[in-house]
Nucleic acid binder design. Structure first.
Length: 352
DNA sequence: CGTCCACCGGAAAATAGGGAGG
DNA sequence: CCTCCCTATTTTCCGGTGGACG
């Protein structure tokens, strides 16, 4: 640990600074939409923005702006990836008591409905992971509650209409809010702001920070990178050092994302990363699975089935860790062509 | 025109566990 | 404790896809 640090907290991804730089317009949009006199017709929202654009931050902050005459709930589709888990968590947030597994969905829905007495705002973050399962039923239930606003959040779907049943969407009818990727300049301001609060003065060179934010505008990656640099630095953080820790920093970011999943997810990701280094030929699902399977064997672990791994690949795709182009037949058969996301060219090239 | 590639992805079943009521 | 219902996680099964190539 170096002596550059005053306090580490502002560099943590989960830290909510006193001021929220760069998303004033979006905050205003939410505030305006929710400043209605009639609390029984709160608006629904779907918020879209790539990873590291401040969605979670924006909404967690937004939830704190409500007076005690409101109930606010935050759930994440990564941890609550089924209707049951989401409802159980909701009940726990509302009452403070855990239900455990084994109950009927309908019972929990009724219990939750009974608890929703105040006007309520529910944020469903990472909604894509819920929609892979029975998230549609959950959203149908939530959007039909009285006095309740539902805000879905996605890093993958600009609009959510195609992902849900017609009946769910017609009951949801969200307004849309999009968070565009930060410009390198905006990203630099945000990171500089955090660094100023966390570090000794003059310990971070301007060029070093610029290098980070021209490489990635994902604030989450940027903060991880900065932390990595701080931990490695002897006296000062310069561009050379930042470049040195570039790969390690991204690995930490990946590990942070995948910590919320299983060891098989992590093994799968590592398998793909290794295969991509070793081979030139495009990777398809079968190749990846066979290699993953072999790695399990040599680690003395039973490999999961190909069907299951197919789902896990979709998870990695939703996390923006891999890219897959789908072949639904043709000379290659029905398969996916898989590659790692080229994270350090985000922003420099933008394909339309 | 038929066949083949190779696995997508829906559906059902297997397995392991919990809660409530008799 | 038994039964019957539930959930969670995973496996098994398999119809279907569309361009190339004979």
């Amino acid at each position: 640990m170096s002596n550059l640090i005053d306090t580490r907290t502002p560099l943590e991804t989960t830290h909510l600074p006193a001021q929220f730089v760069g998303r004033e317009a979006e905050q205003d949009a939410l505030n305006d939409a929710f400043s209605v006199e009639d609390e029984s017709c709160l608006p629904n929202f779907h918020v879209y923005g790539p990873r590291g654009t401040g969605k979670t931050h924006l909404l967690q902050r937004f939830l704190t702006t409500f007076p005690p005459t409101f109930t606010t709930c935050y759930i994440s589709g990564i941890h609550q990836d089924t209707q049951y888990k989401a409802l159980e968590r909701l009940y726990q947030l509302l009452t403070g008591t855990k239900l455990g597994t084994g109950h009927h969905i309908a019972d929990i829905q009724r219990k939750v409905e009974e608890q929703v007495t105040l006007p309520t705002v529910i944020v469903v973050d990472e909604v894509d992971f819920l929609l892979l399962d029975d998230g549609d039923d959950l959203l149908y239930f939530l959007t039909r509650l009285e006095n309740t606003a539902v805000i879905t959040v996605s890093a993958n779907q600009p609009t959510i209409k195609d992902e849900m049943d017609d009946r769910t969407y017609s009951s949801f009818q969200p307004q849309h809010l999009t968070l565009n990727r930060y410009t390198p300049n905006a990203a630099r301001q945000i990171l500089a702001d955090r660094a100023r609060k966390a570090l000794q003065p003059e310990s971070l060179q301007r060029d070093a920070l610029t290098y980070i934010t021209t490489t990635t505008q994902n604030i989450s990656i940027g903060l991880t990178w900065l932390r990595e640099a701080v931990e490695t630095a002897e006296e000062q953080i310069n561009t050379e050092l930042v470049q040195e820790v570039e790969v390690a920093a991204y690995h930490k970011y990946v590990r942070m994302l995948l910590n919320r999943f299983t060891t098989h997810h992590r093994r799968l990701y590592n398998t793909i990363a290794r295969l991509e280094q070793e081979r030139d030929a495009p990777l398809t699902t079968g190749t990846v699975y066979r290699e993953y399977s072999g790695r399990c064997e040599s680690a003395g672990v039973a490999p999961l089935s190909e069907r299951r791994i197919s789902d896990f690949l979709t998870h990695l795709e939703l996390l923006d860790l891999i890219e897959a182009s789908y072949h639904y037949g043709g000379p290659m058969g029905k398969t996916r062509e898989i590659q790692l996301v080229d994270w350090n060219s985000h922003g420099s090239e933008e394909t339309e």
